[in-house]
Amino acid sequence: MYADDTELHYSSSQLERVEQVLQNGLEEVSNWMSVNGFKLNIDKSVCMLIGTRQRVSGGTLCLSLNDSMLKQVTSTKYLDYVLKRVRGKIYSINRLKPPPTVRKLLYQVYLLPILEYCDVVWQPTNASQTRRLERFHSKYISLCNDSSISGQSLTERRKFHTILQTYKVLHKLAPDYLHGIFEYAVNVTGRISRNAHCLFVPQLRTNYGKRSLYYRGVAI
């Protein structure tokens, strides 16, 4: 469930369990907003079932909020949403005309978290959209006049985040459901060679499979 930049997530192999946990979460959110004088826009609140095509085929999430059923969608244009938010924030910053040092601070605490949120997940998406993100990013940091950030592209940072996530998985610093997705070559092939202690690169034929962390975490 997401509304603007607020999201609820839950992962389980049982659809009934997903519905139960998310429904409880929705009720807690609704109660908190009522107590604090906020109102949730039901029309902008939707739910989405995420998984492989085979597992989510025919699956339906039955979630309600304030006696209204949430609409279930099959996709969302997340990067378009990110671009819209970043464009608005850059416009606001430019109106203030802050000095370069303040621009750098705003970049680090105001823009970068939006540009990089969940980038390990959405990294292998539409190339034209990621190029648009790069243009926004490059244009803004050029105004900061700071060499410490001017040489860092979003593409390079996303690669670093993927490597960091792979490290966390291998050292069991990531969520439990990610443990074991990477294997060493010797454990798969059973052969001792100079690459035996390297990670095994899965042989995938489809681009869908190659977009997964299971493949990118090793191939990168």
Rank of each mutant, 00 (worst) to 15 (best):
D119E: 05
V82Y: 07
P202N: 05
I50P: 02
E16G: 08
L49Q: 01
D80T: 03
I141Q: 05
L96G: 01
G51R: 01
K39H: 10
S30I: 05
I192Q: 13
C144L: 11
L49S: 01
K210N: 12
R85K: 08
C144T: 12
G180A: 00
L115Q: 04
E16N: 05
S92M: 13
N207P: 14
T52D: 13
K139M: 04
L61E: 00
M1H: 00
V29A: 08
P99G: 08
Y117N: 07
R211V: 13
Y215S: 09
C62K: 06
L178Q: 02
H9I: 06
T189L: 02
L106S: 06
Q129P: 02
G59L: 05
N66A: 10
Q72I: 00
A196H: 03
Q165C: 11
K97P: 14
G151M: 11
T76F: 01
L15Y: 09
L8K: 05
R216M: 10
G37M: 02
V73L: 08
T155G: 14
V169I: 11
Y2I: 07
I220E: 15
E28Y: 11
S11P: 04
T76H: 03
Y208D: 12
Y177K: 09
H9K: 08
N41M: 12
H161F: 08
T130G: 05
R191G: 13
T125Q: 13
I220P: 06
Q72H: 03
L8F: 04
L40G: 08
R194A: 07
P175F: 12
V35N: 09
K97I: 15
Y110G: 03
W32A: 11
L106G: 10
S138K: 12
K210T: 13
D43L: 09
V56F: 08
F136M: 09
D80L: 04
G88W: 08
Y208I: 13
H161V: 15
F38I: 12
T60D: 08
T6P: 06
Y78P: 00
V86Y: 09
S57D: 11
R17S: 07
N145I: 15
K139Q: 09
R131E: 01
A3L: 10
L83E: 11
R17I: 06
D43C: 03
V109Q: 15
N31K: 07
G51D: 06
K39T: 09
N41R: 10
S153E: 05
M33R: 11
T125I: 07
R205V: 06
Y2K: 06
T162L: 13
M69H: 07
V35G: 10
A196E: 03
I90G: 02
T162R: 14
N187C: 13
Y167P: 07
G59E: 06
G37E: 02
R85N: 10
T189I: 04
N36M: 03
G180H: 00
Q203L: 15
T130F: 10
S34K: 10
V56Q: 03
S147K: 09
